[in-house]
């Protein structure tokens, strides 16, 4: 699973370059996020624009990544496709994340 971290307009953006975050890649996703968030501070945005499917294991992996953030640092989400958004809403996990419609809106927020 390919995750890329870039500094853009003063915030850190992690882009998921995969079409699914499911049970087959959830552990890999969590491990890679742990590496990328090792020195986290400030705002991080997880760009999900390329992801068109998530299951409860993928959702759990994103929550686990959020819990890795040190105090004061924040993991936000951007670019949820309708399918991904629906899973967040049904589990009410949309209430614990700041969610932006796209990576661009996250950058200008």
């Amino acid at each position: 699973m390919q995750l890329t971290r870039q500094t853009r307009s003063g915030l850190e953006m992690i882009t998921v370059d995969a079409d699914r975050i499911d049970a087959a890649v959830a552990i890999q996703f969590k491990d890679r996020m742990r590496e990328l968030l090792a020195d986290a501070s400030g705002r991080f945005v997880l760009n999900l624009e390329r992801v068109d499917f998530i299951d409860s294991s993928g959702l759990g992996a994103i929550v686990a990544a959020m819990k890795l953030m040190p105090p004061g640092a924040k993991l936000e989400l951007a670019g949820l496709s309708p399918a991904v958004d629906k899973v967040f809403r049904m589990t009410r996990m949309d209430s614990i994340f700041t969610i932006y419609p796209s990576a661009d809106t996250a950058l200008s927020a």
Binding site: D55, S56, S57, G60, A61, M66, K67
Partner: peptide, 8 residues
């Protein structure tokens, strides 16, 4: 303490 599973 947020849940990471049990959503299925």
């Amino acid at each position: 303490d947020l849940p990471e599973g049990g959503f299925g």
